[in-house]
């Protein structure tokens, strides 16, 4: 008989780590919206799912005394999108969280889960990249903080070590107060993976002030730093040059959702539009 999946609910971080260590091919599960269909469909099913939604401290969105925002790993995408602080101070994240999946899915999926899947099209990754978020994690070797820029390694791959559990993402207070514009193309209007997406965020307290994140055009979600520099230096008048730079930064492939050439071209179109929209705002 086929080996059957094991499910365990952890009530503390320590318990989660222990449960994970017990069996090879364990996986941590938050919303499970990506994990469960994949576990069903493929031959690489995990042997154990360690459910982290029963860990109280992971289920909170907290504003820290420093003004940083901490989003626990079990907080749903919908809760993040609707959270007043997120909407007011970190609108880029609210925008991207609202674009992810469907309404029932957003009620279940989590932001931390979304980035741990490390899909090139992970919507919330675009915002977290622009906002200089940090991933808090803990593993057998102890706790550590991973800057979001070092978090994505390849399609489906993160810099988390085996057994390491992502506890939360933190967004620094200095990233607050900006404006953001999300350009996102998909094959239909409702609920679709982005064929290509560009997030432009302007953060008054940061350098560079302009942040450009690209989705579905590289092995991982990524920033387009040359474009950011150009926009910082020359403002909206650099729109075309920034678009060229972002297109050059893209490494798209051909797949069933679109061709590399179209994706690259659309990076330019979407960024130009975002610059215009924010410039005019």
């Amino acid at each position: 008989m086929q080996e059957r999946l094991d499910y365990r609910k952890a009530h503390s971080v320590e318990e989660a780590l222990t449960l994970f260590q017990d069996l090879p091919r364990s996986r941590y599960m938050a919303g499970g919206t990506d994990l469960l269909p994949r576990a069903r469909g493929s031959g690489q099913a995990p042997s154990r799912l360690v459910d982290i939604k029963g860990i109280p401290e992971l289920s909170r969105i907290e504003e820290l005394p420093s003004g940083d925002l901490r989003i626990g790993a079990a907080v749903s995408v919908a809760a993040v999108a609707a959270h007043p602080t997120v909407r007011q101070r970190f609108s880029a994240l609210s925008l991207c969280a609202s674009a992810l999946g469907s309404y029932p899915l957003r009620n279940r999926a989590t932001v931390v889960g979304n980035i741990c899947n490390a899909s090139p099209c992970a919507d919330t990754a675009a915002a977290l990249l622009c906002l200089d978020a940090t991933v808090l994690c803990v593993g057998p070797a102890g706790p550590r903080r991973i800057p979001i820029h070092e978090f994505f390694v390849g399609p489906g791959q993160t810099s988390l070590a085996s057994g390491e559990l992502a506890l939360a993402v933190e967004i620094p207070a200095a990233s607050a107060g900006g404006r953001a514009e999300l350009g996102r193309l998909s094959r239909r209007q409702g609920v679709d993976i982005a064929t290509v997406a560009v997030l432009l965020s302007v953060l008054p307290q940061r350098s560079p002030r302009h942040r450009v994140a690209l989705l579905s055009v590289a092995p991982t979600p990524r920033r387009a730093s040359e474009a950011e520099t150009l926009l910082d230096q020359r403002g909206p008048s650099a729109a075309n040059a920034a678009a060229e730079a972002a297109m050059a930064a893209a490494r798209p492939i051909d797949d069933v959702r679109g061709t590399a050439a179209y994706r690259r071209e659309m990076v330019g179109v979407l960024l130009t539009r975002a610059v215009r929209a924010l410039g005019a705002a």
């Binding site: 499910y7 609910k9 919303g31 499970g32 919206t33 469960l36 269909p37 799912l49 459910d51 939604k53 029932p104 899915l105 009620n107 279940r108």
Partner: peptide, 10 residues
Amino acid sequence: VNACLVLAAE
């Protein structure tokens, strides 16, 4: 929620 994406145990 999509009931197919929730485990009964959850």
